[in-house]
């Protein structure tokens, strides 16, 4: 009898659950709208001024004669790999190929997007990582947020990105910031927490202040790990360029997107190849930056 009653209550509760949908979607819509309106004083200057600056910067890059850019990149690749010819040769051939395919301007736009997005990610991410390493409370709060940022499908935050920043490069930077920041935060946290206990004790025993310990011991010790995080962040923001093109971010990603829309496998492949070439050059250069400093 009792059991039956219990069973009934549970059943009726479950069936009643469906009658009234919790207005989560509505709530988010309202929030986005509210934020867009209330914070337009904050978003609009970013949308306009920052967007203009980004485009100016990309234009400026595009105006540098490609030959100079290519020579520069090849030289950097040569010296940073310890005067080896592998990466230098690859950079030379790859960049000439992109130039040959009339994608030079798009390359500069994509590079600008990746550069700016990564810079912002690193500038925000490293201090957040430091905070996390210093406080278990901060770690417990920030960790789920990072999980959320990394697993939420990118398309989902493209929508509010457009609401806040319109279309173009700026929402693209925003989207890739969300997607690409977690690794540098995590690696910074990990790197500092991994500094051996004895070294931290040695630092304390000689009477360092908190910031002396951070800058003279912990950050130098964690540098390799943090740089690995930076490398990951750069790679992830590069992987966002195609998705960001859906909200109007220009560059190689947009070429891929338009090839998709016109079912043109050939141009899609070529633009995709351009992204791969850029990715490999950036990856190898940042990795070697790490090795050199280690």
């Amino acid at each position: 009898m009792m059991l039956n009653l219990f069973h009934l209550t549970v059943l009726s509760f479950i069936s009643s659950l469906k009658e009234e949908t919790l207005p989560v979607a509505e709530f988010v819509n309202k929030s986005v709208k509210w934020i867009t309106e209330k914070f337009s004083w904050f978003f609009d200057p970013i949308k306009n001024d920052f967007g203009d600056k980004l485009e100016d910067f990309a234009d400026m890059l595009a105006e540098i004669p490609p030959s100079i850019v290519i020579v520069l990149v090849v030289l950097i690749a040569f010296f940073i790999t310890g005067k080896k010819f592998g990466l230098a040769t690859f950079s030379l051939v790859g960049l000439l190929f992109i130039y040959n395919q009339q994608l030079w301007e798009e390359l500069m736009l994509t590079f600008t997007l990746v550069l700016v997005a990564s810079l912002i990610s690193v500038i925000v991410g490293i201090p957040v990582g430091i905070l996390m390493s210093k406080s278990n409370l901060a770690e417990n709060i920030i960790k789920p947020i990072l999980d959320f940022m990394q697993t939420m499908p990118a398309f989902v935050y493209l929508i509010p990105a457009v609401a806040f920043f319109g279309i173009g490069m700026v929402p693209g930077v925003f989207a890739s910031f969300i997607f690409a920041t977690p690794p540098v935060v995590r690696f910074t946290n990990l790197g500092i927490r991994q500094v051996s206990k004895e070294l931290v004790e040695a630092s304390d025993a000689f009477g360092t202040t908190g910031s002396q310990k951070l800058f003279k011991v912990e950050l130098p010790m964690a540098k390799t790990t943090i740089m690995a995080g930076v490398n990951q962040t750069v790679m992830l923001s590069l992987s966002m360029v195609v998705i960001a093109s859906m909200i109007g971010a220009p560059g190689l990603g947009r070429e891929v997107l338009s090839a998709l829309q016109r079912a043109n496998a050939g141009t899609g492949f070529v633009a995709g190849l351009g992204i791969v070439i850029l990715a490999i050059i950036i990856d190898r250069i940042t990795q070697n930056l790490n090795k050199e400093s280690a």
Partner: peptide, 8 residues
């Protein structure tokens, strides 16, 4: 001042 076992 302190001297450590594993040098630190």
């Amino acid at each position: 001042s302190m001297v450590f076992q594993k040098f630190a």
